[in-house]
Design a protein around this nucleic acid. Structure first.
Lengths: 238, 238
DNA sequence: CGAAGTGTTGAGGCGTCTCAATTGATGTGG
DNA sequence: CCACATCAATTGAGACGCCTCAACACTTCG
C-alpha cells in the first residue's frame, strides 16, 4: 500500500475479488448489546406485497426479520425498478441514519418482523457505545454488499448473475427436508434485482436446469451440481 | 407505510426517485467533533495512478481528500473492473468498519490527502459519541449513493448514465475561471464507473456535444444546455 | 371449472460491445 | 522548438447479448 507512481496496469494485477471475510465480527449475529433493544420491540405481521414503508416516508422504525422475505425497492417514474437488496430471516433493516426513506421496503412473501421505534434505537446508540459500534458495522456490511452488487450489475453476464444469486440464496436460507432452498420472490423480482428482464431469468434458469446444475420447482430450487454453478458464477469466466 | 395487503401494482405507483435530501445533516460538511481528529492527521501526497491501498490490505488509515481525485476499484480476475465511487476534495474515505479492504483505492490524478490512523479514529469514536454518530451518518450517506448507483447500473441507458454523471461531477467540483468543470478521470475510468465501454462513453459524449448540450476539452467540460442534459439524465425518459 | 396471475419459450430487433483504424494529446530527447 | 514515441480519444463496421413483443403452459385459488 501507499506506493507512489504505480502504473495503473500494475495496480490492475494485484488482488482480485477473492472471498474476503467482510467483517471480523459479522453483524448478522446479533450483538449482545442488541438484547437491550428487545424491550422496545413489538412483533408485526405483513402480508405478501404489503409495503412496510414507501420511498419518501419519514423514518419511524427499525426492523428485524423473524420470518419471510423483504425487498428494498427503488422506483423510476416510468416504472423501471431496481431492487437493491433481498432480506431474509435474521436480517436487519431500517437502521441507516437518514430521516427520510430513499428506498421502499415491501414484503416478498407473508412475513413477521420485530419492530423497534427509531427513537429508542437512537437513544440506545447514544447511551451505549457498543450499540453504536454494532450499528456502524451493520452499515459497513451493507455497503460491502452494495459494492459487490455494483460489480454484478456493471460487469457480469446474465448467467454469472443468476448462478451467483442462486448460490447466495442457498447459503442464506435453510433447506427443507427434501433439500430444497426456498425462492420466495418471483421472476420479476429476481430480474429487478439483477438488472435483467424476467424472460432472461427464465431462459437462463432453463439452461442451468437442462445442464443439470440445478433443479427448479414452484417456490424452491436445489443445487444438483455446485461445481458447475460455481464455474458459471465465477470471476474466471471467458 | 405499514399497510397490510397492498397490491404490488399499487405499491409501484406511490413515490418515485425524486430528489430526496439524503440526510438531515450531510456528513460532507465536517462535523465539529471531527476537529478532534485533526491532531492525529498527517498530510500525504500520491501520484496519478498510485495505489492508496489494495484489495485485501488490512485497514490502517482513514483519509480525507485535500485535493485531487480518488477512485474505489473492484477488480475481477479476467480484468473486468467496476469503480464504485469517485472521490474529490472534501470527501472522506476508508471510514468503514471492515478490517480488510475489499475495494482498492487509487489516485485518478495527483492528489493530496489527510491521513488518520485507524486506531485513533476508532478510539475517538468510542470516546466521543458525536464522532461515532458522524461516522455512522457518513456510512449511511455512502449507502444511499450506492443504492442510487445500483439503479443507474441496473436500469438506466448509456445516455442517462452519462448525462447524470456529468451533472453530478459539475455539482461536486468548482468551475475554473472559464466556466469549465474538471474531468480528471479518463474515458476508461468513466466507463468502469458507469458499467459501459470507453467507446460508448466517447460516442455519447460526441452526441451530446453535437446536440449542443455540453462542451468538452482535454481534462474538462462545461454544460451549455443544462435543461437538455437534465432531460437526458431524467427518470422521465421514454 | 374458470379466471387471473406467474412462468416458459420463440422470433426478431436494438443497444451496446468488439475489433480495428485514425486522429489528437502529451512528453522526451536531440 | 521540432521529430518522434506513447498513450488517450474518436469514429466506423459488424457481431452479439439481452430486450421486446407475443403466444402459450402452468399454478393457484375462488
Amino acid at each position: 500500500m501507499m506506493q507512489l507512481s504505480t502504473q495503473s496496469s500494475a495496480a490492475r494485477s494485484q488482488h482480485f475479488g477473492a472471498p474476503i471475510p467482510p467483517l471480523a465480527s459479522p453483524p448478522d449475529r446479533p450483538h449482545d448489546a442488541m438484547h437491550a433493544l428487545d424491550e422496545f420491540g413489538s412483533v408485526i405481521s405483513v402480508r405478501k406485497n404489503a409495503e412496510i414503508w414507501a420511498q419518501g416516508d419519514s423514518v419511524q422504525y427499525s426492523y428485524r426479520i423473524v420470518s419471510g422475505c423483504i425487498r428494498l425497492v427503488k422506483l423510476m417514474e416510468d416504472g423501471r425498478r431496481q431492487i437493491s437488496e433481498f432480506l431474509v430471516a435474521g436480517d436487519w433493516l431500517g437502521f441507516d441514519g437518514a430521516t427520510i426513506q430513499d428506498v421502499a421496503a415491501e414484503a416478498v412473501a407473508d412475513s413477521v418482523l420485530k419492530r423497534y421505534p427509531r427513537r429508542a434505537v437512537d437513544a440506545l446508540a447514544s447511551r451505549d457505545i457498543s450499540v453504536a459500534q454494532w450499528r456502524f458495522e451493520l452499515m459497513s456490511q451493507k455497503l460491502y454488499l452494495a459494492q459487490e452488487h455494483m460489480l454484478t450489475l456493471g460487469r457480469r453476464t446474465a448467467e454469472e448473475r443468476i448462478a451467483a444469486f442462486l448460490l447466495d440464496m442457498a447459503a442464506r436460507t435453510p433447506r427443507d427436508r427434501s433439500g430444497m432452498s426456498p425462492l420466495p420472490m418471483n421472476r420479476t423480482d429476481i430480474a429487478d434485482y439483477l438488472g435483467l428482464r424476467l424472460e432472461t431469468i427464465c431462459r437462463v434458469l432453463s439452461r442451468l436446469k437442462r445442464a443439470g446444475a440445478i433443479r427448479v420447482a414452484p417456490s424452491g430450487f436445489s443445487i444438483r451440481d455446485r461445481d458447475a454453478l460455481e464455474v458459471c458464477a465465477s470471476d474466471t469466466l471467458h
